[in-house]
């Protein structure tokens, strides 16, 4: 739990003590209502409109650096990221091996993995022996990875928090996601203590994705 969350809890406890026994019930109801209002209305609006990252009450914060903890042992009903995942399970088939995401990104054949979808999902796992760095998404659910890449793409198209470089026909977008989305793995990432990644790099040819991965900046 983050320091901000701990401060919120301490503040709530202090209010309870001050309110006394008579007001305890009313204060509890008021705090619950305030928490619901914060989670459902204030936090999403503030984060969307002002681009700030507010502390979360409901979810445990991820560590600033290092790999995110993922549940182990119990098999999930959803497939975890793997190059053998059927793209059709999370994307819409457009025929001839082309799949489209909800935001309109086209995943085609190509890359050393044989398909861009598998290539992106290779970033859902660390490759500790890989020379150099290897950006790793905190999410290992293929649908969540696709959603994250879509979010970055939409920010890039809107020109929000995005650095753009042109490489011939290609566009290289570095998008600031304003929150942790993964970490830097690979050999050099491990040497640096797997720093947190808050950006996503997208390499695109028009709406066709070449690669997407998390990076520090």
């Amino acid at each position: 739990m983050s320091n901000q969350n701990q401060q919120l809890i301490r503040l709530a406890l202090r209010l309870f003590r001050r309110a006394g026994r008579k007001l305890a019930c009313g204060a509890a109801i008021g705090l619950c209502l305030a928490a619901v209002l914060y989670v459902l209305v204030l936090q999403p609006i503030a984060e969307k409109r002002f681009g700030v990252s507010l502390p979360s009450i409901l979810t445990a914060d991820r560590p600033a650096d290092g790999p995110a903890e993922r549940p182990a042992g119990k098999p999930s009903s959803r497939p975890s990221a793997d190059r053998d995942v059927d793209p059709g399970s999370v994307l819409t088939s457009r025929g001839k091996g082309v799949y489209e995401s909800p935001a309109g990104i086209r995943y085609t054949r190509g890359s050393q993995h044989g398909h861009r979808f598998a290539h992106v999902l290779a970033h859902a796992r660390d490759e500790p022996n890989r020379h150099g760095q290897h950006g790793v998404f905190d999410e290992d659910d293929p649908a969540a990875v696709v959603a994250l890449v879509d979010e970055a793409y939409e920010l890039a198209l809107a020109g929000e928090r995005t650095r753009v470089e042109r490489d011939g026909q290609r566009m290289v977008y570095t998008v600031d996601m304003n929150r942790r989305v993964g970490y830097v793995g690979g050999e050099s990432g491990a040497r640096k203590g797997n720093p947190a990644a808050r950006h996503i790099k997208l390499v695109m040819i028009e709406d066709r994705l070449i690669t997407a991965f998390p990076l520090r900046r």
Partner: peptide, 20 residues
């Protein structure tokens, strides 16, 4: 990673880019 290739070590020169 991004499917870019060069004829030799001079990677500041224009190379080829992969698609499918």
């Amino acid at each position: 990673e991004c499917d870019a290739a060069w004829i030799d070590h001079r990677v500041e020169a224009r190379g080829t880019r992969g698609d499918e």
